[in-house]
Design a binder for these strands. Structure first.
Lengths: 229, 229
DNA sequence: CAGTGGTCTAGACCACAAG
DNA sequence: TTGTGGTCTAGACCACTGA
């Protein structure tokens, strides 16, 4: 059950690197030479090599040729799931409670991240997500009110996150992860001591003109984020 | 300075999704139709759509066609840098101290991860990385001795990580992140109170047959992992 | 200047899966 | 059964960049 077509070429190139046939820093044959060797069109070789370059295994430059990367940049890809899906993927029942929903001026650190979207008042939504009825994560979210329809959606029924992904297409943003000590409010809601180590995710979502929302997610102890390399 | 070629097509498709010309769940025109509209070959459209499908924006199935994803799977890609490069990228001076290097039996949690590579004794290397002379991260590493040359390299000169990336090609593995309270040893070395929230990275690297190394990296407080979405 | 990768083309066949 | 995406081909032109 070995790969066919361009994937077979990709795998063969990987094999030659793995067995040190081609060592880091080496220039490998040109696309035309490899195409002749494998008996295929250059386009097929091109597709395989582009894939390896994207993975950080090869470095390609016009005229200079294709070299095996010296320090292959290890990359990890994470899927950022909707929390509900993440809980259900564990075979648990996902529920959530909206703890608060207000119009507030932006706290300083939030304003710094959201820029001019935070000049007026923001919609603040605080949500507790539960897995099998036990606290899973605490979410503090600040929303740019300009993106909400006039009678705001009822976030008791649909979580804010789910409403956004369905109604705001193709936004960009940043995401950051850190370990922090639980603040009083988070500690109380998650049922842990103040200062307990908490895995925090902060996400900023930007629309075409201005920031849409800033989210701070505090996970209950024991949370791990894991992926294959 | 707008994109040319297949990237222009990709961007135009994204634009139509963003302005809700094509809404989530909609089936978009076939490759042949889009090729006719844009006045290019089907292969060019194909390349653009494949790229968007990989990004999670589109879902494609033979015969069924191409649809705008309902819940676009947000993905984040992280580069996992060599610690030295990470420190130097901040404009700081990177140094490291090998605190211990021994042959030890595998601790239970390490043995569980490394499998049969952990049956005998492992090489244990404990390293402190410093940025401008201040503790940056504590690394505990267990190495499968089978991968080391007979006189083991002098890890006082070259860090273990750098030796590995240069000498072990194309390994696979997993990586995980969590927030934990500092244990006594880590707290002492990093100069923080026991129990302080610590961002921990655990990485398992597997070779063709067996596990190569397991690393547990405890970052000094204030560490953030950040990326664009 | 010239060699290499980046891309496009027009056509073709095939695999898959919806109806 | 048949429409759709997945891929390959042979050739071509271009962009970049090393020499």
């Amino acid at each position: 059950m070995t790969a066919q077509g361009w994937e077979a070429i990709r795998d063969e190139v990987k094999r030659r690197i793995r067995v040190r046939d081609w060592t880091p820093g080496t220039t490998i044959p040109t696309e035309a030479e490899l195409a002749a060797e494998f008996g295929c069109a250059r386009g097929t070789v091109n597709r395989a090599l582009i894939d390896l370059a994207r993975a950080g295994v090869l470095e390609r430059r016009r005229k200079a040729g294709t070299r095996v990367a010296l320090l292959p940049v290890r990359q990890a890809r994470f899927a950022i799931p909707v929390i509900r899906a993440e809980i259900e993927a564990r075979g648990q029942v996902a529920t959530h409670q909206v703890l608060a929903m207000d119009r507030v001026p932006a706290p300083v650190p939030v304003a710094a991240r959201m820029g001019r979207a935070a000049e007026g008042q923001l919609v603040y939504v605080e949500t507790l997500y539960l897995a099998d009825g036990r606290p899973f994560a605490h979410e503090a979210r600040w929303l740019n009110p300009a993106v909400l329809p006039d009678p705001a959606p009822d976030f008791a029924d649909v979580s804010v996150n789910e409403w956004l992904v369905a109604n705001v297409a193709l936004a960009t943003g940043d995401i950051a992860f850190a370990a922090e000590g639980a603040e009083a409010r988070v500690a109380q809601v998650l049922g842990v001591p103040v200062g307990a180590p908490i895995f925090v995710t902060e996400r900023l979502t930007r629309g075409a003109d201005a920031a849409i929302t800033f989210v701070r997610l505090s996970h209950a102890p024991g949370y791990r984020m894991q992926t294959a390399l």
